[in-house]
Amino acid sequence: MTTSLRRFAPLFALALLLVVPFLATDSYTRHLFIIAFIYAIVAANWNLSLGYCGVFNFGHLTFFGVGVYTAAIAAKTFGITPWLAIPLGGITAAGAAFLIAAPVARLKGIYVVLVTFAVSQLAMQLVLSQSQITGGGEGMVRIPYLQLGDYSFIRDFKFGYYYVALGLLVLSTLFLRFVVQSPFGKALLAVRDAQDYSTARGISVSRQRILVLVLSAIFTGIAGGFYAIYLRVASPEVFGFGTMSLVLSMVLLGGVGTLYGPIAAALALTFLTEALAGIQGFEEARFIVVAVVMVLILRLAPGGLVSLLDRLRPSRPAS
């Protein structure tokens, strides 16, 4: 019973999300869903490297930022159609991930954190200093938007954008499901839980880490590309602490090493932080709330809220 429920819950959730635009007809609610879908992609893919592979990667938002700026520059500076600029973000993000992964794969423990983190700061420096290409601190604005023929996706209260975002989330989730359930995904868990034994059985840890970082960057970069095209801005804030802590708290809240947890958490936290941002004087303070939430999760439910639900259930059902 429980297993069949577990199997069908994602499909049920998808069906619900498919009808949301017919229930929520205002553009603001749809906007929140679209932003939540983007964050969900980023959080779920981060979970692949952080949760499944155990790489202490704190530069995941770099891949997102690379996607944002790739799409922005491709669409605005080079006039490439946004339909192509978005997937292009995934390609450059994967390339960036490969470059970062090569030195990181050999490192251990805290040095992985330091290098990946320094990379994200460096990416921000690059964006700020190359202002003739990236717009510097002010960012890029008025990036071309998605349209099909004459139909602009922003019309009808963002109806089109909603389904593009949802479609990307579904694709990303199917991709992650495929990776996790493949023999490669099993090998990931083996290394994470028993590194010495798996190496002895012939799994190359560094090759695995490089591959995981590249795989986790693909849809993160695509999400970044979509983010730039949808919001029509690219600003260096995407590399900052605020965005990073928000997405990290989604990974933690959803449960490290689960497939659907970060997606649910992304929806919950996006609506929570947006509600807080609406309160007078809370525009900045909401990040404090996110940080406190993060600490509380780590303190009280280190496996995420999913683990709390599991704890409520009897661990061994009476046969």
Binding site: F56, F58, G109, I110, V113, F241, G242, M244, S245, L248, L252, E284, A285, F287, I288, V290, A291, V292, M294, V295, L298, P302
Partner: peptide, 23 residues
């Protein structure tokens, strides 16, 4: 996972201090 967890909690402290100072 103390190493990883304390990276996250000190990151949280960083955000609380930065945003708190701004307030």
């Amino acid at each position: 996972h103390m190493l990883l967890v304390t990276v996250m909690t000190t990151l949280a402290a960083l955000i609380i201090l930065e945003k708190g100072a701004q307030l």
